[in-house]
Design a protein around this nucleic acid. Sequence first.
DNA 1: ATTCTAACA
DNA 2: TGTTAGCA
Length: 123
Amino acid sequence: MRIGELAAKAGVSVRALRYYEEQGLLVAERSPSGQRHYPDSGVDQVLLIQQLYAAGLPSRSIRAVLPCVETGEATPELLEWFTAERDRIDRQMRDLASARDRLDSLIVGATAVWRSGRPCPAR
DNA sequence: ATTCTAACA
DNA sequence: TGTTAGCA
């Protein structure tokens, strides 16, 4: 199928498909005229790429991990990699929660200042 | 009409 | 990624 059909079936833009190829995530066969042609399996390929992007992996990581996932092989290395990713995300969540709590404290403090009749500091 | 490459008011 | 330009 051509790029437009794949884009429709996979629910992504044609632009995205060309970008995936540029990033080395998706292979495309070329017709004599230069048009890209994809096998039916391309739909699942794109779906997988989307899941990995949604998981927060940069294209570079996806490129490295794709060959393993595609073959359906849940290799130990792959599981370690994903586990490490999960931990990274967990750390970010905790850092954000921390930053949020500190903002909450500042908000409470600022509110107390206003109630005491002090002038509101400029932004 | 669709795709391709290249490039960015 | 969107979008646009100029082709095939």
